[in-house]
Design a protein around this nucleic acid. Structure first.
Lengths: 189, 189
DNA sequence: CTGATTGTGTGCAATACTGAACGGATTCTG
DNA sequence: CAGAATCCGTTCAGTATTGCACACAATCAG
């Protein structure tokens, strides 16, 4: 891709994320975004039809990154590991400014639901791949986990917890094991 | 000026100053500069004939800034004040990375001399404006001060002293008074 | 209400940037 | 030494960006 396109998009997205962290999405203007990105206003319209499109693409990009962060081990592992979970939480920690702003009360409407939906699809696929229901109603289990995980993420990115990303990852990993979402450790007889 | 030109120049200068701080000027390549600036190699040649021109323009810009920093009080003051001197040292402190790199042993050849020359011209003008020689050979006094000030600047920007920019400014101001380079304070009789 | 201000989305010609190519110089590397 | 690799400085056609213009909508202050 042309270097100019990359630079412009990065600048625009960066400015947008900054602004999201500073004020309500509705009162962000294209002028502000262009100014902050040090880019002509026309350039913004060249890449995005309006600020809703910009928001949408921004969210999509982050969700792709998030999903990607769940299996970074060269595709060799089909299931998350303690290691990959640490990596995911590390990613969330690094991008906390965006996720926190989007999740905030007056942040991006329905963002929490979209995040939850992404997590739900992830868990759903995971259960399908494992093949075993293990005595639980699948829909309930998956819903349960998606909601819980969304909450954990919110705690992390809004700095509402004193636990570090690594500590949180460790705790959540234990919960995943307890809920039989990952290959079980054999209890020593 | 076209926004693209501003952005490109800033990126190139920024990359160049970074590199100056990392390695010998001679072994810096145009490729590196372009890469670091996230700019096409051709763009560098669009603004600078070669790296020597880039260096030259970079030095010129900094010297203009430096001179500018000496009288920031809206041109109302003809002579430096304790306040303006603090401002100047603050400026040097903020741009220490460049000045230190340029002054370094294997930094920019003859940079120290050019800096000294700038300071010399400044002091010379200052003595002329004051109109009074006060019993000193002007050339000697000015030379003396320019050399001394260059040394002070080097101390500051290379972090060779534990004194802060403000402390240094205060001390140097006292020396300026002692050498009758500024309007004298009346000794209380 | 009215005029002023600010934002939106679109269109346009001018232009700065890009990437690729090239020949030639210099420097590694075996 | 020979060949590979890197850098230089230039050219060029294609493209993204710019700044300005416009008409229109929304918001706001008097």
């Amino acid at each position: 891709m042309d270097r100019r396109i990359r630079k412009s998009r990065e600048a625009i997205i960066g400015a947008f994320i900054q602004l999201i962290g500073e004020k309500n999405f509705e009162q962000i203007t294209i002028n502000e975004i262009a100014e902050r990105a040090n880019v002509s206003r026309g350039t913004v319209y060249l890449h995005y039809t309006d600020k809703y499109d910009l928001l949408d693409q921004c969210i999509r990009t982050h969700f792709v990154q998030l999903i990607d962060s769940c299996l970074p081990c060269g595709e060799q592992a089909l299931f998350p590991t303690a290691e990959s979970l640490r990596y995911t939480f590390r990613y969330l920690d690094d991008h906390a400014s965006f996720y926190a702003a989007a999740l905030a009360n007056q942040g991006v409407p329905a963002f929490r639901n979209r995040l939850q939906a992404v997590l739900l699809r992830g868990f759903d696929k995971q259960v399908d791949m494992s093949g075993i229901n293990r005595g639980m109603e699948k829909g309930i289990l998956v819903q349960f986990l998606a909601v819980a995980m969304t909450g954990m993420i919110e705690q992390l990115v809004t700095r509402a917890t004193t636990y570090s990303a690594a500590e949180l990852a460790e705790q959540v990993w234990a919960l995943m094991e307890r809920n039989q979402m990952v290959p079980q450790v054999q209890p020593t007889p």
